[in-house]
């Protein structure tokens, strides 16, 4: 009980980020992050000056490309296309993976039968799934998103299976005695207990998914950050490659700060106030 509790709390903390709300405590980490990023930029700039080459542009050049692409509207068009694919693949992977994971975690025999499948899919390289999806289903959006989702689903399954195994039966028994409906059971009993696992799966999920989306776009789409990077690779334009990469990393950072963290703070609000 205590061991599991501890693990859950640790997962929760990992996912819940900082819980302090007094201004000095929230400002300090932000300041540290800013200084750290500025330091990295400075190092980059120094290195680019020390070794001037077309293959290694400095931050200034990348910024110029970024402004040019933004002004022409290309940047937002391609960022939007990639973001849409990331969102769709994420949604499909989380829903399908969670359902399978919870089923496998709840039914021992099904788990024993399907476990080899999970291991098999965990170990199929992303590239193979993408190539096969394009061959079998054609160069279309559904194949692209499906291929990314299939890459991510086994990870979600494994995490959610652990979560389902750790479910506390006493809550389910309470719900049975008081005759909770199926919807109430999912909303008030199941999901809150799985929240740390959902958070862990989402975290590792978003990062993995956007990297795979780029490969999908590179291989068979005519827009998106991956397509642009492929284009500029052929033109040997490193500044543009870096500009697109950094722009999308920034987008993901905004998603993290404005969407993921507030949602998690809300989901773990009951943990924050100590007894």
């Amino acid at each position: 009980m205590t061991a599991r509790d501890g693990g859950e709390r640790r997962l929760g903390e990992m996912a819940g980020a900082s819980r302090r709300s007094d201004p000095a405590a929230t400002l300090m980490p932000a300041l540290t992050v800013t200084i750290s990023l500025l330091g990295l930029g400075l190092l980059w700039s120094l290195a680019a000056n020390a070794w001037p080459s077309r293959a290694f542009p400095g931050p200034g050049q990348v910024w110029q490309v970024l402004l040019r692409e933004a002004a022409s509207g290309d940047l937002f068009y391609h960022l939007g296309a990639t973001l849409g694919r990331v969102a769709a693949a994420y949604l499909v992977a989380m829903v399908v993976g969670s359902v399978i994971g919870i089923l496998l975690g709840s039914y021992r025999r099904a788990d024993r039968f399907f476990n080899p499948w999970v291991i098999l899919f965990l170990n199929i390289p992303a590239l193979v799934i993408i190539v096969l999806a394009y061959i079998w289903f054609g160069l279309n959006e559904a194949a692209a998103i499906g291929a990314v989702a299939v890459n991510k689903i086994p990870n979600v399954v494994v995490t959610m299976r652990e979560g389902a195994r750790a479910l506390d039966p006493s809550y389910a028994e309470m719900a049975a005695v008081y005759r909770f409906g199926p919807l109430d059971r999912v909303r008030h009993i199941l999901l809150p207990q799985l929240q740390p696992y959902l958070a862990a799966a989402s975290r590792s999920g978003i990062a993995l998914i956007w990297k795979i989306v780029l490969v999908v776009e590179l291989l068979g789409r005519s827009n998106g950050v991956g397509f642009q990077i492929h284009l500029y690779f052929q033109l040997f334009d490193v500044a543009a490659i870096l500009a697109y990469t950094l722009a999308f990393v920034a987008v993901m950072l905004v998603v993290e700060l404005l969407l993921v963290q507030p949602v998690e703070r809300h989901a773990t609000r009951w943990r924050r106030r100590p007894a």
Binding site: Y171, M174, Y178, I189, P192, Q195, W270
Partner: peptide
């Protein structure tokens, strides 16, 4: 039917 269990068994998130 209603039950009071050995542990309170309240949902910690509600």
């Amino acid at each position: 039917i209603a039950a009071v269990f050995q542990e309170p068994t309240l949902l910690p998130w509600r």
